[in-house]
Amino acid sequence: MPGLRDLVKKSDPLTGGHRACAGCGAPIVVRQVLMSSKDPVVVVSATGCLEVVTTIFPYSAWTVPFLHNAFENSAATCSGIEAAYQALKRTGKIKEGQHINFVAFGGDGGTYDIGFQSLSGAVERGHDMLYVCYNNEAYMNTGIQRSSATPKGASTTTAPAGKVIPGKVQFSKNLTEIMVAHEMPYVAQSAVGFWRDLTSKAEKAFSIRGPKFINVLQPCRLGWGYKPADTAAIGRLAADTCVWPLYEVENGKYKLTYKPKEKKPVVEFLKSQDRFRHLLKPGNEAILESIQKETDKRWEALLAKSEG
């Protein structure tokens, strides 16, 4: 397991000077994941905040090989690069050299919704690549539209809280479980605010050959509405309230990697952000209760699987 004393010796995959908001969680995810790789990396990104802020023409913040193709196909593009590399090795056009880690990044829009088919396909074909979803629970880059990762009750510009609806009406899709259903070697869920958890999951993923998936909750100060300094703290609050449990599934075997000392009520998490502010007004008790109930249900289901 790498400590920060080892990680500081590595070269940074991202330079400063990228145009992410102050306090953005996405570069934190990228730096922690890529610095956990012992081998050289090749990075592909879906369209989204990360791609836009790091590659504003004619600048690029990436110090590692980077390719952007489109919104829906980061997994397909990454799998193509991996397949090409294997073909060149097989035909002897490049010598058997050092192992390369192929990494694709996508936001929740580019992973849960638009890029889902290409991700599912790449996993089914069994490419040796890691897909990391930096999940900020809405289409933040285009101005905070709802996605299938947006939690119930969150106000977004396409599901705004008002007289008719209290923000998004549906619960979020549980993509991590969908990826587990692909029966791939390694699936994990992590969050910004747990550097050791994320770096050890990334390191473990890089040590496994075949498709890997990590879903990282990335608080977004703009879309979630909180002070920029709180990015990591809000990620930890999500884990403490069990809204976003941290776990990994290795070859179908569940393991909880973080168990909160004391399970906090979901309201603690909701009241920390402006996107849920309307839920705390009188008359919304039923929604709060339904969110707590769903969170408990998912948490209990996870606990049962981890013990069994």
């Binding site: 400063g16 000077g17 102050a22």
Partner: peptide, 27 residues
């Protein structure tokens, strides 16, 4: 580890020596 802007300056012995105000957005 948590600076989004790679703006924490380290010296050659990898000790923290300051903030890179060229990039720090003040989050």
């Amino acid at each position: 580890a948590y600076c989004p802007d790679s703006a924490i300056l380290l010296d050659e012995n990898k000790k923290v020596v300051g903030i890179d105000y060229k990039y720090c957005k003040g989050c």
